[in-house]
């Protein structure tokens, strides 16, 4: 019988875990009150993953300013992770400041649906889970083994989610901080009429934007 694996879904609680990392044993609960980016990579000492780790380390200060922590994960051992981050520092001059889960038994990877057998039966694909301070999954990205992730998009996504939380607005395509945001659509004909008088920039009653 084929095994059914349930993936986390947006708006639901992130699955709890306790796992060994390069910074000691960490529980998901340890991040309560902070935003968390949990991201998987296929394997240590591989070229695309190395470029991604350097890139994650480079955006880490910007993430910290936004109250966001990073937590990496792969099915490699602690010893491999330690050797790899030391190698990155030695060869590329970049210190990896965040912990990495050693998920040798794939316990956490399975909980988060990070192993996609169509891509690899043994490695995790390039997943990104953005988990908010209440441990709710707010966004997920899945990239194939061959494509390194875009750090600008990850930062943009964090900015957009935090802006939505702060202002109760949505963000349009390609939104960047400083751009106008979208006012949620009206739910009654009366509020649709009123909306047009409220000074928003409206293409029509259902598409109105405002400056932050």
């Amino acid at each position: 019988m084929e095994e059914v694996i349930r993936l986390p879904r947006l708006g639901e609680s992130a699955p709890d875990f306790e796992a060994p990392t390069t910074h000691g044993t960490i529980k998901l609960d340890d991040y309560k009150g902070s935003w968390l980016i949990l991201f998987s990579h296929p394997a240590d000492f591989t070229p695309v993953c190395t470029t991604e780790f350097v890139a994650f380390a480079q955006i880490y200060p910007e993430l910290q300013k936004r109250g966001v922590e990073l937590l990496g994960i792969s099915v490699d051992s602690i010893t491999s992770h330690i050797a790899w981050v030391r190698n990155i520092e030695e060869k590329l001059g970049v210190k990896i400041p965040f912990p990495i889960i050693a998920d040798l038994n794939k316990e956490v990877s399975q909980l988060y649906g990070m192993v996609h057998p169509g891509q690899s039966k043994t490695e995790t694909v390039r997943c990104v889970f953005i988990i908010d301070p209440n441990k709710i999954v707010r966004a997920m990205l899945y990239y194939p083994l061959t494509t390194g992730r875009n750090m600008d998009e990850i930062l943009r996504l964090i900015n957009a989610l935090q802006t939505t939380d702060e202002h109760k607005l949505a963000t349009p395509a390609n939104w960047r901080p400083g751009d106008m945001a979208i006012v949620p659509p009206p739910l009654t004909t009366e509020s649709a009429e009123e909306r047009l008088k409220q000074g928003y920039e409206c293409a029509d009653w259902y598409l109105c934007k405002k400056k932050l």
């Binding site: 910074h23 000691g24 044993t25 960490i26 529980k27 609960d29 340890d30 009150g33 902070s34 922590e69």
Partner: peptide, 12 residues
Amino acid sequence: LPLFRVRSGLRE
């Protein structure tokens, strides 16, 4: 220190 590190450290 980041809060997650303090929490995991105190537990240890």
